[in-house]
Design a protein around this nucleic acid. Structure first.
Lengths: 331, 331
DNA sequence: GACCGGCATGTAAGCGATTTCAGCGCGGGC
DNA sequence: GCCCGCGCTGAAATCGCTTACATGCCGGTC
């Protein structure tokens, strides 16, 4: 079922059918009607691979995320997809599950697909991969990782500021023994997420923190919290790397009969929808995922017009106070 | 950057490069090494479109879901993806957001991509679309919708049974005034989800139900619950079409100071991870999403070997008792 | 030493579209 | 009455790859 069969049935050439498919206005109305009829009768669906091969302009953008299970990533994806559709683009996603082999193969896959643009919302990026991307000449946007280059734009959130707000808030309420719940992929040497916490803690006299990590899931948050609670002095607050893990923490605490925020305060990060619906509602830090999504699309879909020069943009997150935090308990 | 350039650099023909790329074992080791070297030096990435065009066997399967935001769908996707990867396939997803135009265009897109198989985990399916799929000759699996055909297999869950278990349980505990929270796309004439509820209710003397619907989200559940509570006699239990909406219901009740399950019982459906982590943990019905995912992949990836004859399979869901339900309050 | 079989590689024909350029028919200006 | 130009359509090259078939080269057999 190809162009030629349609052409034959409509008694025109393949060129004309192609023109109809692409809305070229040169085709005479009567001819167009014949072709459209043939297409429908034959239930013809153009082969997109052939189209891309011949046309060279891909109309699909790729997006790679670390963990679609975490609504944080999904929310960004959703915005990107909606913007892309509005511009006539498709988007194909790939999940890495924080595994770097997956990242590598996903990137290769996207290059192989000759996507019109690539958004990488992932936690890690090896220099070698960045080279590969640079050479591929595909417009790329990284979120939160990597460094700007020729065809690479960066969007990042000022986590440090967000964390500072959280720690400051907790300190003011009298908290002195903190726990930090992270996820495995954050345990690299120079860690972008733990470091700000340690740095912030170091600024306040008498403030201490100990950390634990597990997978970036509800269960992971629960397990990390469990191990945090298993040893050492009692904690008065648990700072979580994101909301998902914080919800996991809440469950662990609840099942141990530890009241939040009366006995222990808990904070999240991201402000996913869920953080309002869990109990108690999470004090967290808002990261504007829609803004990020729009930024990604704007950057990717306008590589020619805009100067593509502001290679880096930083977003400032906002503190959100809810019910999972309160004054430190008097011991 | 194409095969030919690589071939030139490695001083072989394009055929040989292609053979190396496809792991054909006929290539002499020394030749292969030269080619591999050239590929790396040139940072060559094969054009997948050209590959698909030439090869005709697509190695990617498509999946269409109604609402990726709901972890129910995501869980199925995750299993499918993992099975597919294991078999050397990629999977590309599309979201319909319960919009039928989206469904149409997504299906067309998948046909255009000449996917090796298509999984449609969606709520609605027009006969015309089924025809299109049948003609496309792509192996298709529908979840929960449509009817078996030549190349179409169906997987469905016996919702009726699940609902029966829920209603029976609630009735036994003394509940007589029920509310049902559905989502918009369920409001079609002959409804697959509401009907079983109404039918079940009709079987018990003195049992009544009224329904409300909103979008399939946390907020939707909350709003539907609000409207359920706004009019009529007081309810003793709220049955939700799925867990996400149930969590929304829990929040609305909590904010009104209505205790669950003391004042009102709430049930979900699906048993997503989240239902254990919300408060109170949801009584729900388990739908084995991993089983469904495996089934989908098995069916899609073995169209030739297996007879593809058992065109329909039904899954029986299981009742899961947790903390969001209890005896009806004594009025 | 001519011949044959088999392994490694090369040649070239598609795959199904897009697109350039050429051609055809026809009406209007001279 | 001719020719030009314009509007529409067709022929064919092209995109980057796979693969069937052809070819060249080698050692072994008689």
């Amino acid at each position: 079922m190809n162009l030629e069969q349609v052409a034959r049935r409509a008694k025109v050439s393949t060129a004309t059918v192609s023109r109809v498919l692409n809305n070229a206005s040169v085709v005479k109305t009567s001819t167009r009607a014949r072709v459209v009829k043939a297409i429908e009768e034959l239930k013809y669906h153009p082969n997109l691979h052939a189209r891309n091969l011949a046309g060279a302009k891909s109309k699909t953008i790729g997006m790679i995320v670390s963990n679609m299970e975490n609504p944080f990533f999904f929310d960004i994806y959703k915005t990107v997809e909606s913007d892309a559709h509005a511009a006539g683009y498709e988007v194909v996603v790939a999940n890495t599950d924080y595994r770097s082999e997956q990242l590598v193969s996903s990137i290769r896959l996207m290059i192989g697909r000759r996507v019109a643009g690539l958004a990488a919302v992932v936690s890690e990026m090896e220099p070698a991969l960045m080279d590969e991307l640079t050479d591929s000449n595909i417009p790329v946007v990284f979120y939160d990782v990597g460094t700007p280059r020729q065809n690479i734009t960066n969007i990042r959130v000022n986590y440090r500021r967000g964390i500072d707000k959280v720690i400051d808030y907790l300190y003011t309420l009298g908290h002195r023994k903190l726990g930090f719940v992270g996820h495995h992929s954050l345990l690299g040497p120079i860690n972008e997420r733990v470091r700000p916490v340690l740095d912030a803690v170091a600024r306040y006299p008498g403030l201490e923190v100990r950390t634990a990590a597990d997978s970036d899931t509800l269960d992971g948050g629960r397990l990390a919290t469990r191990s945090l609670l298993a040893t050492g002095e009692p904690l008065t607050a648990i700072v979580c790397v994101n909301d998902i893990m914080a919800v996991g923490a809440l469950r662990e605490l609840r099942e141990r009969g530890i009241r939040v925020p009366h006995d222990i305060s808990v904070t999240g990060f991201d402000n996913i929808k869920f953080s309002e619906f869990c109990y108690p509602a999470l004090t967290t830090v808002h990261i504007p995922r829609d803004t990020i999504g729009h930024l990604i699309c704007d950057t990717l879909l306008s590589k020619s017009e805009k100067n593509f020069a502001d290679h880096e943009m930083v977003i400032d997150p906002e503190f959100v106070l809810r019910d999972s935090t309160g004054p430190a308990p008097v011991l």
